[in-house]
Design a protein around this nucleic acid. Sequence first.
DNA 1: TTGTAAGCGTTATCAA
DNA 2: TTGATAACGCTTACAA
Lengths: 292, 292
Amino acid sequence: MGYTPSAVAQSLVTRQTRTIGLVVTSISDPFVDRIVDGVEGLATEAGYSVFLCSSHADPDREMEIVETFHRRRVDGVIVVASRVGRLYGDHLERLRVPIVLVNNQADSDYVYSVSADDEAGARLAVRHLVELGHQRVGYIGCGLRPPSNRRRQAGWQAELEQAGITVDPDWSTVPDTMDDIKNGRLGLGPLLDAGVTAVFCYNDRTAVGVLLAARERDIHVPGELSVVGFDNIAPSWYVAPALTTVHQPRLKMGNRAMQILFDLLAERPVADALLPCRLVVRESTSAPIENE
Amino acid sequence: MGYTPSAVAQSLVTRQTRTIGLVVTSISDPFVDRIVDGVEGLATEAGYSVFLCSSHADPDREMEIVETFHRRRVDGVIVVASRVGRLYGDHLERLRVPIVLVNNQADSDYVYSVSADDEAGARLAVRHLVELGHQRVGYIGCGLRPPSNRRRQAGWQAELEQAGITVDPDWSTVPDTMDDIKNGRLGLGPLLDAGVTAVFCYNDRTAVGVLLAARERDIHVPGELSVVGFDNIAPSWYVAPALTTVHQPRLKMGNRAMQILFDLLAERPVADALLPCRLVVRESTSAPIENE
DNA sequence: TTGTAAGCGTTATCAA
DNA sequence: TTGATAACGCTTACAA
């Protein structure tokens, strides 16, 4: 009837805004998109609106954003790939705004989290390589995301050891540029020198860097080198060769984060979630070449 | 001092929320990401927060979202790739909420727009192909985005005609699946039958579909077929071969949309913006093969 | 300069 | 059941 009630006046009296704040490192990060889809989808369905803001991976910005969200009296906050993590506990027990972290476990009483099982995912990738017959498989990591890098690297190492392979320290490298693709490019040389026949990468973009560097060196993938990524971002299936990768259930992770937030708001009991990954085999892996 | 003033109470009395609503078709659309960055960057800098919501290209959803934003008393709305477009005029002159459309010109008094110059961009692409020596260049369009498709197709045709080439109707096809990549895949066959030596695609994903289909048919790109895309999304430079494409200044478009909204809010005079595109030549184009 | 009161657009409470 | 009224947490206009 030509008139729309003011949600802000309603919020003032009901003391809830039906609004949540979502902070991401960058919207241009292909890893983030489906997670945003996941939280936004559930939120909208429940009549919530979501504020989106990028921290650009700056911890101070991240904190500012959360304070801004609090100032706007959001009912809750979701942070993807937090750079602050467990530090929230201290800072936010005053604010009393429910907060859930995606891919960044933090065992504070005020902070909950949903993450993909990085270590198990990494093991899936390495097991695939080992079963293919690879003995010397390398790892190219990511210096800018220490927690998840650590878990994926640990999974890589554990799976190799379980296969009875002694891991050579030269098989792994953890570059720390801002650019994942560049990391992959940079990382390949040293690993090749160390004699690896396959490389497991921190994420798909790193793997793309490896693909690019391999092409420049005229190394055939997967003939001469197998490579596997992590995340299963959209381009991973249409680069050449299509990437074998570890799928993270990103939409589901977004959904779950939102669900946890709803539970928190309704004061239902909640538990952190650790979601399983899945191996997706495509064209970038095969049995190692037989030499001599 | 351990206390944060409530922005909602402030909003109630100042009658402005310092909030804007941004509606996109989907966050997972690689075209959208940088536009969101552009909007969000300027907004945050100016102390505004942004609500993000996906319409999934459904006009009804889009309208609902705008109404929700209005209910929340956003100061303005930005819609990327609107499916409603000029229809807003009638519906929103009551709401009196400033609205700016990105890539969807609508000449209503209440609706402003910023767009990339699709037609000029298309001509850039085709001119490049013609200068390379191609005489029969095809076009694969997008049935789901009629306005921009029409402009790009018009640019393609105009540029060919200006080069003195008579355009064969069989050189163009406009598939209308939801999936751009599939469109490219589908479109290649008919064009090949019509004898084209180069194809200009509605966007980069369509071009990726062409690349994929060409590989399956063992057609070498660019040796036997040149292909150019549109948008310059991130993957376009790391697919193989790297795509020649038309760059849309998406970050700038986002910035500009936000700037226009600010001008509207300050009651400064504003004008629609039409931003130029730029050709980016990479590896997917070359001179046509000489036959007999 | 400092303080007090009215009002922003709703919901909720409590009389009638 | 209906209808008036206080309160929500601020800004601002005005009085002291």
